[in-house]
Amino acid sequence: MSTASRTSDQRRTGQTVARILMEIGAVNFRPEDPYTLTSGWMSPVYIDCRKVISFPRARKEIIEHARQTIVRKIGFESLDAVAGGETAGIPYGAWLSDSLELPMLYVRKKAKGFGRNAQIEGDPRPGQRVLLVEDLATDGASKINFVNALRAADLQCAHALVVFFYGVFPGALKLLEESGVTLHYLATWWDVLEAAEDGGYFSREAIQEVRAFLHDPVEWSLRHGGRGPEVAV
């Protein structure tokens, strides 16, 4: 999704969060040696939102933007708990639950296999309306496991929030939409590209290659040995 199709509030949030991620070194441009994403796509860019845990002022600003996004898009009293996805979503879940003054849960990728054999940790209550929180999303597929786990525990999950959404791969939101989940996000690669150009963070050549990727990620991924549209979700 390009920045042009978003509201002014979304654009301001996207630019602020993108600049923060650039400043703390969470953004990596490497078109000459592409990254293989967990989804199978090849990408000249990689984002490491886990770095935010080491920057208190940066994370406070990001969480405030997340809180405002939730209030604006979901509502003041439309959630009962916040659930972080194992592992990168757990700190974001903790910070956001504190900011929203809501109980926190966290969701394991699979049941731990001993003791209570729980996949949901905390104090889940049947019927709770839960926001799933993760650090980022590429094609949305990894979120489905967490959503299914929450629903299997008799919790409601109609919303997920990530700090960063790639926002370029075709059909990226299809699985979530078909599962009745709305994905909310703070920044995309379009925001990062704009911030990178404004701040002169990367070479002209690197920026041009990233722009080529953003305009046609399928062709770029295929050309660099990644997945193609026949397996896109």
Rank of each mutant, 00 (worst) to 15 (best):
Ile53Lys: 03
Asp33Thr: 14
Asn148Lys: 14
Thr38Ile: 06
Pro124Glu: 10
Gln119Thr: 09
Gln128Val: 05
Lys73Leu: 08
Met42Phe: 03
Ala149Asn: 07
Gly75Thr: 13
Phe114Met: 07
Lys51Phe: 00
Asp123Met: 15
Asn148Gln: 14
Ala111His: 01
Thr69Gln: 10
Ala153Lys: 14
Gly25Thr: 14
Asn145Phe: 02
Lys109Asp: 02
Asn148Thr: 15
Arg72Val: 05
Trp41Phe: 08
Glu121Leu: 12
Ala111Asp: 02
Asp123Ile: 13
Ile120Asn: 06
Gln119Tyr: 04
Tyr92Lys: 08
Ala83Val: 10
Glu32Gly: 09
Ala83Lys: 11
Arg72Pro: 10
Asn28Pro: 04
Phe76Ala: 15
Ala149His: 15
Ser142Met: 09
Val52Pro: 00
Phe114Ala: 08
Gly89Ile: 03
Tyr92Glu: 05
Phe29Leu: 14
Asp139His: 10
Gly93Trp: 07
Arg57Asn: 13
Gln128Thr: 03
Ala81Thr: 06
Glu101Ser: 07
Val27Trp: 00
Ile90Asn: 06
Tyr35Cys: 02
Tyr106Asp: 05
Lys112Asn: 02
Ala66Arg: 03
His65Arg: 15
Ser39Pro: 01
Ala58Arg: 02
Glu134Phe: 00
Phe114Glu: 06
Ile70Val: 15
Pro44Ile: 00
Leu155Glu: 04
Gly85Arg: 01
Lys51Asn: 00
Leu105Phe: 01
Tyr46Arg: 01
Val71Thr: 12
Asp33Ile: 05
Gly127Pro: 14
Pro124Tyr: 10
Thr38Trp: 00
Ala153Asp: 15
Pro44His: 02
Val133Gly: 08
Leu96Pro: 04
Cys49Lys: 03
Gly140Asn: 04
Ile90Glu: 06
Pro91Arg: 07
Pro56Thr: 11
Cys157Leu: 12
Gly93Glu: 10
Gly93Lys: 10
Pro103Glu: 03
Asp80Phe: 07
Ile120Thr: 09
Glu121Met: 12
Arg67Thr: 12
Gly40Pro: 00
Leu131Ile: 13
